[in-house]
Design a protein around this nucleic acid. Sequence first.
DNA 1: TCCTATTTTCGTAGGGCATACGGGAATTAT
DNA 2: ATAATTCCCGTATGCCCTACGAAAATAGGA
Lengths: 270, 270
Amino acid sequence: MASEHDGGGDPGRTLALLWRGRTAAGRPPGKPVKGRKPRIGVDQIVHAAVAVADAGGLTAVSMARVAEQLGVGPMTLYTHVPGKAELIELMVDAVMTERELPGPGHPARPAGWRAQVEHYAAQTRALHVRHPWLREVSTARPPLGPGMMAEYEYLLSALRDAGLPPSQMFAASGTIVTYVVAAARQEAEDIQIEQATGQTWDAWWGERRHLWDEHFDADAYPTMTQVWLDGGFDDAGDDDTSTEDPYMYGLQRLLDGIEAATRPPRASRP
Amino acid sequence: MASEHDGGGDPGRTLALLWRGRTAAGRPPGKPVKGRKPRIGVDQIVHAAVAVADAGGLTAVSMARVAEQLGVGPMTLYTHVPGKAELIELMVDAVMTERELPGPGHPARPAGWRAQVEHYAAQTRALHVRHPWLREVSTARPPLGPGMMAEYEYLLSALRDAGLPPSQMFAASGTIVTYVVAAARQEAEDIQIEQATGQTWDAWWGERRHLWDEHFDADAYPTMTQVWLDGGFDDAGDDDTSTEDPYMYGLQRLLDGIEAATRPPRASRP
DNA sequence: TCCTATTTTCGTAGGGCATACGGGAATTAT
DNA sequence: ATAATTCCCGTATGCCCTACGAAAATAGGA
């Protein structure tokens, strides 16, 4: 019955772990000093788990394997982390904070809201390339840690500069995150499959070229056939700059649309 | 070492299974008539597996459970499908064909390319709501069956009507699929988590309201705080139509951008 | 120094998973 | 009736998460 999301644990404890006990006042609560000294800590566990996932994907992350990396028994981890689900939450938020998302006033902050969104997209894409296992984790109930907060703080500050009214900020930021994360995940999937199977996209298609001879009926798919004959499936040629990287093409179209919606306040529905 | 994608099997056999032995000429190759009569067939296995996944998610799909549904032993399935990975491919392509995507000339086909893309989006969203487990399957190496072919045939025919040059069709269709599928998956995740844990989005947040008191530092996230104070996170009110469903807002912005890019053939880069 | 409270460490054990292998059962052709 | 062919499935292996409880290590107080 139990699916990927158990959530059986205490949310308060998970939050405290995500923020490493830091409270709003900046005061970590006092720790007891008695008892056996811990050989390992949360940070080391999360770091080891990320290393395992980077190398072998999420399926390679077993409590046994992470513990082995640290030279302790598997059950030792349960002293520091409630369970595997919570460990994965910690992993996600930890790598999220790897992104550099400079706020207003910071010298490294790009100028203009479009450049800022593009910076966010590039950082997010790089993050997924670095940690392809991110795509295997559901973010419908995101880890409410510093990493996720930084993402929204940055994105909202960029859209604020774009002149969006507060009522549209929610929809616009959600849309941008949806598209950018989806594109990043696609790239991550590709990398992950290639490193898991050792097979490139072209090799994979080559193994299935058979499809066209045996099963594909050109009459049943006239448009595909026509576009193929027109060269629509050719790789991006240097002679035609409009045959762009689909990712960048889509991001620019989306930002165009958002920009157009802010400028003239005309009604959008006829 | 082996990840989610083994692909160890024979691609030709999987293709034949996806197309159920139908060749381009429409002739299924002759079948031998000797031997014991099969109690079950591929269609029944796929149907049962989809039912199991609909009820309990992809993790509930085990060979044992699917076999149980059919009243046979687990190992019996291996007579008809090469393995679990291939069974999942068959499941995905099977449900993909559930979408109604009427081609040119069909009476049910919407008029205008935007309406056609919106129809595709609605059908895809409904598909994911019906089968939330789709979001757990990687589509980086999609099943090359009738379902996927129908998707691209429809989308390309719509974009053709939009007047896109062949060189942009690839990027535009890829972008639309990326956004629409990502949004559909998000909705599917929500449904899946709610039916798995019995916990709504609001209840989940309620369990974590603690976050704001204990860990959230308003000074560290000034924009979020300001937007919250401006009411940017309020639920969509009936009085303000611009506070739209993020999904529809994003789709319209994306289509606006694509439309604008086709109309005036001006250079996009300064 | 010894006792005691406290904390960390981890061995064992139980239930589930995919699937290689090979023997037995059912059906048709000869 | 016999042989050929196909389908069905019991068994066995190795991996996973984690509940439970005992053993080990540490600190302060006497």
